[in-house]
Every structure is written in C-alpha cells, then in structure tokens.
Design a protein around this nucleic acid. Structure first.
Lengths: 339, 339
DNA sequence: TATCCATTTGTAACCGGTTACTGTAACCAG
DNA sequence: CTGGTTACAGTAACCGGTTACAAATGGATA
C-alpha cells in the first residue's frame, strides 16, 4: 500500500517544464499572460504527470474555497429535488463545489458544519441559524442568501422565496366559496418555518374574511412530512370524532400524501366527504388519487435565483433584497373541482 | 469593508493562552493528553476569541479533507431524496462534510469536480467515471463505494445496489400470467445505467419464459424521468397506432408519472385498457391515479450502507464486496389488481 | 540527593499552492 | 549606442494548521 499518492506538485511540474512555480500557477489561474511556447509545454507536462492542483493548498493560499454551502433542516421532502437541481446547476456553471448539510434548531449544541471557515458563502434554508447568527455572519461580511426566509431586522441579506399568504388566502377561500367548506383542518409546517407561518396567516385571514370562526383545535402539526402528517391527522380523527371536518389544507404536497392516506384509511371519500389541498405542486401531485388541488411554486427557479444572487455577492455586486416569486392556484379533483 | 475577517489563528489562541501552537493543536485533535488547567484555559480563550480552525489549512497539513463526495448523473428524480437522506445522516454522524456534484458521460470533456484532490473518498452513482477511471482511482488507493453499479473486472471496490433482474422478471410475469398482458412496452433508463440493464434483462427473460416474442419496437427510452418518459411514450403512441399495447413497464416510478400522463391524455383507461407498473415505490406511488404497482427498493438503506462502507474503508477495514439488497413486488391497482 | 521514567509542552519544518517584488530580455525612439 | 518601455519569468515569503523531535517538569526510586 503506497500512501495517498496525490504527490504530483506544482514544483514537479515546474521543474519538468523548465520554468518556475510562479509561471505554472499563473498559467493555471490565467492570472497573467504566459507565452505560447511555455503554455504548450506546460499543457503537455501537466497531462503527462496527470497533475491535479491540491484544493486545500490552493484554498489556503488564495483564501477562497470555491465552495458554496447549503444548510437545510432536513432531507425529508421531495421538494428538495427541484431546489437542489436549481442550485447545483448554477454552482457547477461557476465551477464551484456544493456542500450540503443538515442543521436545525435542535442541533444547536454543535456548531454549524459549514460557514466562513469552509465555504465562500452559503444558502440558508434552515432554522438552525438564529437571527443573531445571521446578523453576526453578515457583519463579518460573509456572503449569504436566505431561501424561504426573510432577513432579520431588514438586514440587507438577499432572500428568495415564494408568495405564500395571498395564495393561501385564495386557496382557502376557494374551499369555502366554491365548495362550501367550513371546518377546514390546517396542517402546520415546521415551527418557525416562514412558509408555514405565512400559510397559517393566509388561512386565518380567509376564515375571517368569510365569517368562519377560527378553531385552534383544527390546527395540527404536519411538519411538511407525509409520515408526521399521517400520524397527526390520525390522532386528531381518533380523538375528535365529534368534529365534522370537511376539508384539510395539508400545508404542502408531501404532507398531503399522509393526509390522503389517513383519510382514505378511515373511509372518508375525497373530495365528496372531505376536500384536500396541498402546496408546491410537486411532480407527482397531478397524479395522486385523487389529483391534488395545490399551489404551484417555482421551486427550481428559487434555487437558481438564490444561487445566482450568491455569486453576484461574491462579485461585490449590489444585493437583491427580497425576491418574492409568484405562485398560482392549481385546482384539481381533490378539492371537489373537475368532478 | 474589512477583508474576510476569519483572522483568528491558532497562534493567537496559543499566545493568549500562554502555550504553544502545538499544544493548541493537540487539544483540538485530542491527539495527546493535555493537562486539566491548560485545557480549561484553552477552552476559555477559544470561546473568547471565537476561534474556528481553518479547514483548508488543516486539510493541507493533515492530508485529510474530512469530506466525502457524491457523484450523480443528475438531480431529476425523487429517488434521490431518500438516497441523500441515508447518505447525509451517516456523513454527519462522522462529522464529515458532503459535497455533491453532477457528472455524467456527456461531461467527459472536463475533469470530475470531485476526486482525491478534494475528498477523502467518494460514492459513485454516475456513469461519468468509466471503468478505467474507477480502476485507476482504485489503484491509487482512493476509497470509493459504488452505488447501483457493480465494480469493473471484479475489482474489490465495494458496491451497494438492489436486486433488479429477478424482481423485474416477477413483475413482468405478473402482468402476463395474472393479467394476461402480451404487448408490454418497456421504458429503458439511462443508457449504461445498471439498474436499467438488469431490468431490461429481467423483462426479456420474463417474455421468453412465457413464450412472448421480444419486439424491439416496444423498448423506449424513458430515462427514469417523467418528462422524457412522457415524450417518448407520446411519440411511440402517435407513430405506432397499429400496435395494441396492453401494458407499460415504466422503468421506475418517476417515469411512471409521465407514462400515466401520456396514456390518460390519449384516453386510455388504466388498468382496464393498459396496465402500468413502475419501480422503486417512492413515497407518492401508492397515491397515484391509479395507485401504482411497483417494486419497493430500500433506497435510503442503500445510501446508509454505502456510506458506512465508505467510512469503514477509511479505517482500512475489509471492503464489503457487492451488497445486493432485497426488493419486493408491490401490487396495487395500476396493473389490474385490487380492482 | 541523584537518577530515571513518564508525562506534558515547545520549536520549527513541513503541507502545496499564491503572489509581491525583482530581474531580464527584447524592442523601440532618440 | 543608450535609456525607457513592455512582457514575461523567477525567488521567496506567506496562508494556518500538524507533527517529529527535543526538552522541561515532576514524582518515584535508589
């Protein structure tokens, strides 16, 4: 067993090509003009030696990591596939690397795994970093873009998210006005998650606007996860058989899967007995049983724009403020439409 | 604008604590015993200074990155959520970082973004690395675990995947024997993808075992992607109206979504007119219209085991050979069962 | 008290790049 | 022929840690 054989260094390349290390470095980074003959010689030698620059050495010397971080609460939702896809595309285009890590408010006894020490900047989609953490990182001039979260104290940290409140208002009002629903259960998302907060606000506003009293008992914790939503709704149904639920807003499409399962197992007919609606319009949502009424959110675009803004921060360009992408109501059968 | 303010170094900590840098380093890495009073003093000083070790410097000196890489063809499939979840959990448990990158055979003009120069080892779920690439990395002693791919030339590279051929045989035979299907379209996955290969083999074997002649025209490219599957099936239906298709094996559940869409748009009734089956049993599959008959594959477990094997390679432990996880037929309505 | 061993700490040479500063050659105008 | 550019290349000091080796400390033993 030879030891880790990445032993080809810039000095070996330099020696073999008969030039100095500075020349090789400049050639690698295009940081100065190198004469044609020398360039060609270097190209050949590097190929022969299979030279690959050592990332850590480069990072140490140049003080840039060429890495962007993505901090997530968890990885339990199909929502992350389009998001990651949008992010990764931009990261790769810039020839950076992407490190993803989960970190949520429950892990606050350990430091965040990514930060200024190992990334040039990061995308924050996590409640693991408190407002103070964000402020302190921002004060240290660390490039960040918030995803589905607005900056604290109106700090000039760019933020990319989607419109939640108005569309949820529409969604709930649709249930009330078009389908005559009155006892609408709402499954909350993770606590302190902003989408969740605004969706709840929209939900309450729609109830109020239509003269339906708000009933605290109808708000459950679905956590934007099918399993948790399934359990929560089951418990609710079992312990409150006297409440005549006629609709469920699942919080998001993932949770909607758990909601459908729980309701169908109890023999509820959807949408005849109970309407179900979600949020996000994930790829599968049009094909659920029944097809899910939901809100389409441009998740891949969120990822793409957020990452582009992060890179523009690297270039010291003006930050983008809060970017609020439009959402759209998608009515399918699960609410009672298209029957 | 102050410059990147991560300026607290180990020497400052050492000076303020009145010890040498070696002591601080040893304390950080627990690489030698440090006396109680010194430890406490260091702890306090590091907190005061908010010292965070510089990852690149550490990597350079210790010749370890504490990073594991994951190479993927793309990020277009919900399949990746459980896979990533399994991987990330193990990575975090070991206090490593995870960098994910897409790299497929079409990107072969550029070098892979991750490798020995920036990771301690990697998980390969990608056709971007040829068998020769793998062999060469393995020869250089670079820890790797293959995911859904078997090692070339029976090289001792651990590999974790799921049983494809036998279960696909069962799946197709189920269509034939139980539901009397004879003209079964098969949507291939990405070319050179092994799951795809074995599923195709199982498909052919089932046809042969049941006296159904293989018809090349019925094999389409679905690429394990809903959009591509949708387009491919649409084109097929449009240009071969004379072929009386009575079943479609979508290749995987993601493609099944596109298949359902294309068939339903053409007015086919599922499962009465055409049976549809998938593979993977993703979270949504039981809730499609109609519920999808598929094969359940322990994807999160694949991710977890593969990552654990990678870490055991780091410890020089004996590699694990090929791990073949069991799969299981799940019959639902889309094939004609549970009508 | 002198000697020895074990434990803890310190000094300084790396790790493999980047880059400020310097040097040299080639070319031009005067 | 000389002085001044311009264009390219080289030397060596960093970047912030790790660790081999050496040394100091202190307690036990003779």
């Amino acid at each position: 067993m030879t030891k880790k054989s990445h032993s080809v260094t810039i000095r070996q390349v330099a020696q073999k090509a008969g030039v100095s290390v500075a020349t090789v470095s400049r050639f690698l980074n295009r940081s100065a003009a190198i004469s044609k003959p020398v360039s060609q010689r270097l190209e050949k030698v590097m190929a022969e030696l299979q030279y690959v620059p050592h990332a850590a050495a480069r990072q140490l010397a140049s003080r840039k990591t060429r890495v962007v971080g993505l901090l997530l609460n968890n990885l339990h939702n199909d929502f992350f596939v389009p998001l990651l896809n949008g992010i990764e595309g931009v990261v790769r285009k810039h020839e950076y690397n992407l490190v993803i890590a989960t970190y949520h408010s429950g892990s606050r006894d350990m430091p965040p795994p990514i930060g200024p020490h190992n990334t040039d900047g990061m995308l924050v989609f996590s409640d693991g970093l408190s407002d103070e953490d964000l402020a302190s990182l921002h004060a240290r001039n660390f490039p960040m873009v918030l995803v589905h979260r607005t900056p604290p104290n109106s700090l000039p940290i760019p933020s990319v998210t989607v419109e939640n409140k108005k569309i949820t208002f529409e969604l709930i009002e649709h249930l009330i006005k078009v389908h005559g629903r009155k006892r609408i259960v709402m499954m909350r998302g993770p606590i302190h998650q902003e989408d969740s907060y605004w969706r709840e606000t929209g939900y309450k506003a729609a109830l109020a606007a239509n003269g339906i009293p708000f009933d605290e008992r109808l708000v459950l914790n679905g956590n934007f996860e099918r399993g948790i939503a399934y359990t929560a709704l089951n418990e609710f149904l079992a312990s409150n058989p006297e409440i005549p639920v006629d609709a469920v807003f699942a919080g998001d499409d993932d949770a909607a899967i758990g909601v459908l399962k729980a309701l169908q197992e109890k023999g509820h007919r959807i949408p005849e007995g109970v309407s179900v609606v979600g949020f996000d319009d994930l790829g599968f949502s049009a094909f659920l049983t029944p097809p899910l009424t939901t809100v389409s959110a441009p998740t891949e675009t969120v990822g793409r724009i957020a990452t582009e803004q992060l890179f523009s921060l690297f270039d010291q360009q003006i930050p983008g403020g809060v970017t609020l992408l439009p959402t759209k109501l998608i009515t399918r059968r699960s609410c009672g439409c298209n029957a």
